[in-house]
């Protein structure tokens, strides 16, 4: 009979044996992939607007208004001002390209998503190519998210996010530190895990096909009565965060506010589970929702 100390000693000695060096070919392969692997910036930095005090929020909003006004005046001056010559038409599928038109090449040649405010056009973004109308932006070209409007604050803003191989779902997103569920690799595995979360779905999942790839669509909403942060520790979420899922690369989905929806189209793309996440709030207008839908309708999957 071994003592606990003997077993620990044997296990430690055994663990000391074996492989330590990473083969050069593995390291070379990683380094070769860097140019095609965009870095993710901390997404939705504007989320912090909701955490600012009121005077600071007003100041930030004022700066944004001035910036938008300056850009607008600049555009007006470039186009001859109000009542001047008509502005260059936005490119359409049939319009001839002009020097000032935003790029709309064929999907296979679409440019990568630019940084900041995005001119309307067709772009490649991670595993999709899609066509965006005016008014969309991204914090940087390597992000996974695009959003409508100058910020992503509730109650009416919206965004579109892309996920590859979600690996963990939190059965209680408010208490995510103790409720991680590691899920299997299929669409059905992910759907089952999401349906079982405390967050819950607003309706049963339905079949969906995007660009010929089949999957399931599910609409999840952060409960209106959940409290991320506040004065009473007993009612707070873990870390004052509401975390619903994590992908295989360690990217986390933190929700921004009660009532926020994630309308997820989860697709089986050659054995990989990829998801397109439409993010909006109950107050998002029908017109904005239709715009979001049009973007999804334009998606071409590019594995």
């Amino acid at each position: 009979m071994s003592t606990d100390r003997d077993v620990t000693h044997i296990v430690r000695s055994w663990l000391e044996e074996g492989v330590t060096a990473l083969p050069d070919r593995v390291l070379d392969s990683v380094l070769d992939q860097l140019p095609a692997t965009p870095q993710r910036r901390a997404w939705w930095p504007a989320r912090r607007l909701g955490e600012m005090n009121t005077p600071l929020r007003i100041a930030v909003a004022a700066v944004a208004v001035v910036a938008v006004a300056a850009i607008g005046i600049n555009i007006l001056l470039m186009n001859g001002g109000v009542g001047g010559p008509p502005s260059t038409p936005l490119p359409t599928a049939t319009a001839a390209p002009t020097a000032t038109a935003a790029p709309t090449p064929s999907p296979t040649l679409a440019p990568r998503l630019p940084t900041g405010q995005i001119p309307p056009g067709t772009y490649r973004h991670l595993f999709v190519t899609y066509t965006l109308p005016a008014g969309w932006g991204t914090p940087d070209s390597s992000g996974t998210t695009i959003f409508k409007g100058p910020a992503t604050t509730p109650p009416s803003d919206m965004a579109l996010d892309l996920w590859q191989n979600v690996a963990t779902v939190y059965s209680d997103p408010c208490h995510w530190q103790t409720t991680a569920v590691h899920i299997g690799p299929t669409v059905d595995n992910l759907i089952a895990a999401l349906v079982a979360t405390k967050r819950g779905s607003t309706a049963p999942p339905v079949d969906v096909t995007i660009d010929g790839f089949q999957g399931k669509e599910i609409d999840l909403m952060v409960p209106l009565n959940v409290k991320f942060k506040g004065s009473s520790k007993a009612t707070l979420c873990d870390g004052a965060q509401y975390k619903s899922m994590t992908d295989a690369g360690g990217g986390d989905r933190y929700n921004q506010a009660p009532g926020q929806h994630d309308l997820l189209d989860i697709l089986d793309v050659n054995g990989q589970t990829w998801a397109i996440d439409r993010v909006f709030y109950p107050a998002t207008t029908a017109a904005d929702r239709a715009e979001l839908q049009a973007i999804v309708d334009s998606i071409k999957i590019t594995p």
Partner: peptide, 29 residues
């Protein structure tokens, strides 16, 4: 990282894949 992955997975191929995946995730995030 590779040494740790190998000790957890007990398989050379899996450990190399996991290390590669982790290094790319480190770069990305």
């Amino acid at each position: 990282l590779h040494a740790v992955a190998h000790r957890i997975l007990r398989d050379t191929d899996l450990a190399e894949d996991a290390t590669q995946l982790a290094l790319l995730a480190i770069w990305r995030d």
